[in-house]
Structures are given as structure tokens and as C-alpha cells.
Design a protein around this nucleic acid. Structure first.
Lengths: 133, 133
DNA sequence: GCGTGATTACTCGGATACAAGATGTCCGAGTTTGAGCGG
DNA sequence: CCGCTCAAACTCGGACATCTTGTATCCGAGTAATCACGC
């Protein structure tokens, strides 16, 4: 079990945008170059973030991607869910009674992880990076 | 991202063995039947648990699988790691400096989940089920 | 009754087939910027 | 100087191609219990 590379790219792109925070959008070519991905593939990933309402895209010359308003509240979990989906990581496919104890244990553990991911934002991360520089 | 069905089967098999705790081994056919899996596939999964030292197999007629001694200390995390492997669920494939802040955040969250899974054992679960019955 | 061999029931391991999802590419279509040109 | 047109730069979205991984099956080999048979 692993997070997909797409999630990796999405997180890094969000952090990059958070650190830059320009008025003008940033082209997908530049973003892709920073991470050694093909621009078309990255754009496919970023489309998901657009649909999730985290960033917005501008087409045409000097177009690209830009953070949306109130991006400061976006957590790691939001980004991960936008890419990976929100399905829980364990389904007891067996029908052995109403509640599966195993499932309960695993989901409880998953909830701990999500709590942690929900409490971390790109905004914090970007701020701490700027302070160091 | 999801745990594989194999993990599902492994957890359920361990719980089943823990509740039964017979001296005689239990055949893979019976175990497979309970979960609607093919016996050969299940045996392939259980081989991993054998290699991890959690159960042992007996070949020949009336053979099967049986818990090993000191199985009471086996946690959920042990079982999951035996099937899924122990690789962490996030690798920053990018080389942008020594430590990746994103990676740190995700791994920290993963650690929370593992703590929880480490604290839960099949022994507890089996005991609570027996009390109910 | 007792040992010995054959049969049966079972696991083990490798090879293979199949399916699904992740990853990545290609291309046509639409959109905005900016430059060039004519009035 | 102004407005129009056109080319260039860019994103968007769908349709593929490829690769990896999970899931599952098949079969030959080995092993232990049990049964049958002969002494």
C-alpha cells in the first residue's frame, strides 16, 4: 500500500504555489520541470485539484495555475483526498454479521492518521520555509 | 490507496485461528470456504504468514495451519506488514535538499496510524468475542 | 495381530493467466496575449 | 494613434499505449495419515 506518485506531485505543486503566491498564474511547464514530470501528465493531476476547488487554471498565453482564495485553510488531507479519493483503506468484503471487529480496528487507526493530516496545512509549511530563507 | 484483499484475508484467517485455537491444524479448504476465496490463493497468502513466523503449516493428510507459540503478542501491524511489506507509504522521489518537509508530515501521520495498529492484537479481539458468546 | 506397501488427503512452490489501476503520451480544440498591419 | 486580424503560447479534455501490481488458477511434487493386504 502506497500513495501514488500523483499524490506526490500534487503535494509538491501545492507547496510550490504556496511559497510563490504570485498574482500571475504559473505555467504547467515550469511546474513540471521542477519535478521532472511531463507537463501533460501533471496537468491531468492538477485538473483534479481544480475540480476540488483548491486552485484555478487560466488558459491562453501566459496562462497556468494559481491558488484560489482561502487556500490557507487547505490541509494535507484535503489534497490527498482530492487525488486518491475518499474511500477508506479497508473494506471487509465478508458479510459475517453487522459489524466487523477487524474493520473497526483498522478504521480507527486510519482515523488517527487522518486527524494528523487534517491538522497540517500547506500554509504553515510555506511560512516556515520562508522564515528559514 | 487501499489495503489489498490479501491483507483482508490474512487478518480474518488469523482471527479465525485465534478464536478456534485447536491443537490440530485447520485445513486451508475450510479457511477458504469461510471467506469465499480459492484455497490455493489463500495458501499463497498464508505462506507469507508462515515465513513471518506467525503460524505454522502441517503437510499431509489432516494437515493445515495452526498458530505458533507466543502468537498472543502478534499485533495488527505485524500481520499487515507481513502481507503488504514494510515500506512506508510515501517516498518523495524528488531530490530537493536533504529532508522533504512534505515527507516528514506524511510519515508522521503514518506513524500515528501504526502506533494504533501496534497496540491492537488478535488475542484481545478473540477474547472479547468469546466473552460475548 | 502386525508390519509393509499402496492409496488418499492434504500442503508447497513455481509458472502462468487475467484484470485493474497507475503512469504517461498524443493530438485536436478552445482561449488569451501580443504583435503586425492598415486605416 | 486606433482598431482589426492573425499568429503564438498556453491550457483542456479525450483517447490511447504501457507498465506494474494484485488477484487468481493450474499442476507437479512432496508429505503424512489411513487403509488393505499378506504373513
Amino acid at each position: 500500500m502506497k500513495y501514488s506518485k500523483a499524490t506526490n506531485y500534487a503535494l509538491h505543486t501545492m507547496l510550490f504555489l504556496a511559497v510563490a503566491t504570485p498574482e500571475k498564474p504559473i505555467g504547467v511547464q515550469l511546474l513540471a520541470e521542477k519535478q521532472n514530470v511531463s507537463p501533460t501528465y501533471l496537468s491531468k493531476i492538477l485538473t483534479k485539484l481544480v475540480k476540488a476547488g483548491m486552485i484555478e487554471s487560466a488558459s491562453g498565453a501566459s496562462g497556468g495555475y494559481r491558488l484560489k482564495r482561502n487556500w490557507e485553510t487547505i490541509s494535507f488531507l484535503d489534497i490527498i483526498h482530492a487525488i486518491e479519493g475518499t474511500t477508506s483503506l479497508f473494506d471487509c468484503s465478508l458479510d459475517h454479521g453487522p459489524e466487523c471487529l477487524i474493520q473497526q480496528v483498522v478504521l480507527e487507526a486510519e482515523e488517527k492518521m487522518e486527524q494528523q493530516l487534517r491538522s497540517k496545512t500547506m500554509y504553515e509549511l510555506a511560512k516556515s520555509m520562508k522564515n528559514v530563507q
